[in-house]
Write a protein that binds this DNA or RNA. Structure first.
Length: 562
RNA sequence: UGGGGCGUCGACAAGCGGUAAGUCACCAGAUUUUGAUUCUGGCAUUCGCAGGUUCGAAUCCUGCCGCCCCAGCCA
């Protein structure tokens, strides 16, 4: 895997350190990790962190990483999510033609293991209602009470569990519980539910089952069945580790993976929970899971992020147990790094200002320039950029009354049109409204190519597009999705949607692009010189191509202005 | 008032008893037909706080403070 990022020092986090040591001492021979998404939503950048960790470790230590769907709750899951997850994983550059594992493939084994627990007196069918069960559980500081059903005989439990399985009871009538310790200070150990009745058709097993295993019961067994050595999960499961170990010990699996927890990724000005992302999608606050403003893998893909940039980002942020919130700047910097290196340059005017070059001939042979596609990489070739009497420049590149430090165009000033000529602003034409209509300029034919034989210098270089050759396009400018750094933070944080940024999407309808982009394929990424990185969307709007702004260029002028 | 974690530069993050890596951000300068890129230099006498052990502590011990997670038949 080639991350084209510069500083690719070998990351040394506590997990890798630990595995390296286990391999050295022979405690671990071949590392098996797994990435276990529940197919109930799209993958997001937080998952990418986990993917890079798990697949990365497997690759670095010569092991394997299993993509395994943790599909134990059919009421929330579906095939469309399975498909999207596989697509995202492939796009990220992991999992090429690998085997796909499913928890649902182990349902029969889980069932048999449950029978074993029952026979060993380690599990029982409980008929308390959910409300009763909550009462019996006790509180954080008070121990729970044992269920009156806890002492059912093995035979009765076996009989009841069999009836649960064969559909003899309605949802919620009974559950199978582990018999552990109702007074444990760890609430997860107070006779946790192992199985619940759910008459829901499963996207893979159909109606074969009407009991489904709970996470705590299923997950460790999935790992053990697959011979996973390191089961890496997020911090909130730390309290579940005793239960993870308990199930494996009581079932007596041959393999006993170790669970290791790390801090999940949080990013500023966005949300990362699948539940909240779903809410945005369903509430129409964004245009789907793959909206370019979403922190989902598919959203970032449509925005123009590259797989390598996401991998580089994950490498840079590291892995630890400290809860943190990472600045978006880190992500942006990662794409810029990649795109600066690899995106061809092109000129595009986003907010056009018409410029008539008065001394340029009305009709003449085609005047065009060979512009390099990348100023530092001649191997990327050149393309033709046509010039003509009427061109457009960026509105913000002209000021009627410019301050001293403004290097661009102003009345009487001379600037360079990139790769073309020097032009000088002679006069300004106005609309009735007083708005600037167009500029009247003159050019210096001697400066063809962009430099003056007399050696005179010019402070600014502007990008431009020839009017009669321009390709019209729509360009979508994205800003942060939320106005608050931590939209779901705060004590009694109300609806997280209250801090949605109403200006997260701005559409520029009348952009003009140089003709070389005409036949670009959807997904094609460019640097629009002096503006940023943009990606051609699959969608077209009113026949015009639509570009998404991936990231801006760094702009020290903007900084200086404010 | 239970249990489990975590506290090193503005944001991440190494370090695991021998005297604070790196990344992003930021600042200064150089080069530049993108005010981009690139390059050079700067940026924690200090590791939540207070004690203690030690020739020596971010690293060990004690106490305190702060933050996060746990009472789904979700994962």
């Amino acid at each position: 895997m080639d991350d084209s990022s510069n500083q690719d020092t070998i990351s040394r986090d506590f997990i890798r350190n630990r595995i390296a040591e286990e391999i050295e001492t022979g405690k671990c021979r071949k590392v098996i990790t797994r990435f276990p998404p529940e197919p109930n939503g799209f993958l997001h950048i937080g998952h990418a962190k986990s993917i890079c960790l798990n697949f990365g470790i497997a690759a670095e230590f010569g092991g394997d990483c299993h993509l395994r769907f943790d599909d134990t709750n059919p009421s929330k899951e579906s095939k469309v999510y399975v498909d999207s997850i596989i697509e995202d994983l492939k796009w990220l550059g992991f999992y090429d033609a690998g085997k796909t594992y499913y928890a649902s493939d182990y349902f029969q084994q889980f069932y048999e293991y449950a029978l074993r627990l029952i026979r060993n007196g380690k599990a029982y069918v409980c008929s308390l209602s959910p409300e009763e069960m909550r009462e019996y559980r006790g509180t954080l500081t008070a121990p729970g009470k044992e269920s009156p059903y806890r002492t059912r005989s093995v035979e009765e439990n076996l009989d009841l569990f069999e009836k649960m399985k064969s559909g003899g009871f309605p949802d919620g009538a009974h559950v199978l519980r582990a018999k552990i310790d109702m007074s444990s200070p760890n609430l997860n150990m107070r006779d946790p539910v192992l199985y619940r009745i759910q008459h829901t058709s499963h996207h893979r097993t159909g109606d074969k089952w009407c009991i489904y295993p709970m996470y705590d019961y299923a997950h460790c067994l999935e790992d053990a069945i697959e011979g996973v050595t390191h089961s890496i999960c997020t911090l909130e499961f730390e309290d579940h580790r005793p239960l993870y170990d308990w199930v494996l010990d009581e079932v007596g699996t041959a393999c006993h993976p170790q669970q290791i927890e790390f801090a999940r990724l949080n990013l500023g000005y966005t949300v990362m929970s699948k539940r909240k992302l779903l809410e945005l999608v369903e509430g129409g606050d964004v245009n789907g899971w793959d909206d370019s403003r979403m922190p989902t893998i598919s959203g970032m893909r449509s925005r123009g992020y590259t797989p390598a940039s996401i991998r580089a980002f994950c490498k840079r942020i590291g892995v630890s147990k400290k809860e943190s919130r990472i600045d978006m700047l880190m992500l942006e910097e990662a794409v810029r790094d990649d795109l600066n290196e690899n995106a061809p340059r092109v000129m595009a005017v986003l907010n056009p200002l018409r410029v008539v070059i008065e001394n340029y001939p009305e009709e003449r042979l085609p005047d065009e320039f060979d512009a390099p596609n990348h100023p530092a990489k001649p191997e990327m070739g050149t393309r033709k950029v046509p010039f003509s009497k009427v061109i457009y420049i960026e509105r913000e590149d002209f000021m009627e009354d410019p301050p001293k430090k403004f290097f661009r165009l102003g009345p009487g000033r001379e600037v360079r049109l990139r790769y073309a000529y020097f032009i000088k602003c002679e006069s300004v034409e106005y609309e009735d409204s007083g708005e600037i209509k167009e500029l009247r300029c003159t050019y210096d034919p001697e400066t063809r190519g962009g430099s003056a034989p007399d050696g005179r210098k010019v402070k600014g270089t502007l990008h431009w597009v020839s009017e009669k050759h321009a390709v019209k396009a729509e360009v979508r400018i994205y800003d942060r999705l939320f106005n608050k750094e931590n939209p779901d933070g705060g004590k009694e944080a109300g609806d997280f949607k209250d801090s949605l940024n109403p200006e997260s999407l701005t559409s520029l309808e009348d952009c003009l692009l140089e003709p070389s982009v005409e036949n670009a394929a959807p997904g094609k990424r460019y640097q629009f010189e002096r503006q940023g990185y943009f990606c051609l969307d699959v969608e077209r709007s009113q026949g015009r191509p639509v570009f998404n702004r991936t990231a801006t260029l760094r702009d020290s002028w903007a900084k200086a202005k404010s």
